[in-house]
């Protein structure tokens, strides 16, 4: 009952601001606190970007034809999303290949163990699918939301019994290559639960769903990420198998020369 009242109030509030250009500015939280879109995104960054983490995950790619490919990797992050390192540990075809992303995903190096070559790749490569999956490099290293996106609050919606902010965002000049995205943010945890991606046109072409929240080291963590390509009807399911937060990771781990270390 309280929830219904709250939704009605929120819709009323948004309706009042609609057409004035103010609809992007304010939102209501469970704590009756007015939040701007920027503040919501800052809280998303705070909730999703741990000071440091170390994890092992799998990616199962289901192609349009229904065939499956499985990738396994270990990942390290530090300073939120500022420093990220991914090493593939399986299958044998890609074992040892590594991706280093620094400066919030602005600088990317790719390492191939058979040639022992670490090469800096340009930002256009962020649009490339990683190892044939439905995730691109920029999806993997999405970076700081508050600085990479700006936009409007569309309203709120219920996803998996969670009341969510529904935001429409466009990338800032430092942001990714998508024309726009819509995200749904859990009002309680400030975790993203769904993202729709647009290139152009009226329909989204990709959808990311985050679920199976577990509390790890005190942080609510989505353990399952499903990226659906709505145009090609393929899907990539990423599952976190193990994750630790606040681990002591030296800065030297996130250097180009460390990619070559074995």
């Amino acid at each position: 009952m309280k929830t219904t009242k709250y939704i009605s109030m929120l819709i009323l509030t948004i309706a009042c601001f609609a057409g004035t250009g103010w609809q992007s500015a304010l939102a209501k939280t469970g704590e009756s606190e007015d939040l701007t879109v920027k503040q919501i995104l800052e809280k998303v960054d705070e909730a999703e970007a741990a000071p440091s983490s170390q994890g092992r995950m799998t990616q199962v790619i289901t192609t349009t034809g229904g065939q499956e490919r499985t990738l396994e990797m270990i990942s390290y992050t530090k300073d939120g999303t500022d420093k990220q390192l991914m090493r593939y540990i399986g299958p044998a075809r890609v074992k040892g290949e590594s991706i280093l992303m620094l400066n919030d995903g602005d600088d990317i190096w790719y390492y191939s163990p058979r040639t022992d070559r670490a090469r800096k790749i340009a930002s256009h490569a962020k649009k490339k699918k990683v190892m044939g999956s439905d995730f691109t490099y920029e999806d993997m290293g999405s970076g700081n939301m508050a600085s990479k996106y700006e936009g409007n609050l569309i309203g709120q919606a219920k996803i998996d019994k969670k009341i969510c902010y529904h935001l429409e965002l466009t990338p800032t000049p430092e942001g990714p290559s998508y024309a726009k995205i819509q995200i749904w943010v859990d009002q309680e945890t400030f975790l993203t639960v769904r993202v729709d991606y647009w290139e152009k046109g009226t329909k989204p072409y990709k959808r990311l769903l985050l679920s199976d929240i577990e509390v790890i080291d005190g942080r609510p963590t989505p353990m399952k990420y499903v990226m659906k390509n709505l145009r090609e009807h393929s899907e990539t399911r990423m599952e976190i198998k193990e994750i630790k937060y606040n681990v002591d990771l030296p800065d030297k781990l996130f250097t180009e020369r460390n990619l070559k270390r074995r």
Partner: peptide, 20 residues
Amino acid sequence: PTYEKPGRDALKAEWGFGEA
């Protein structure tokens, strides 16, 4: 061009600093 090449007999020493 990206096909692997045979290694060379060498001594290599590196001193790394900064990110790259």
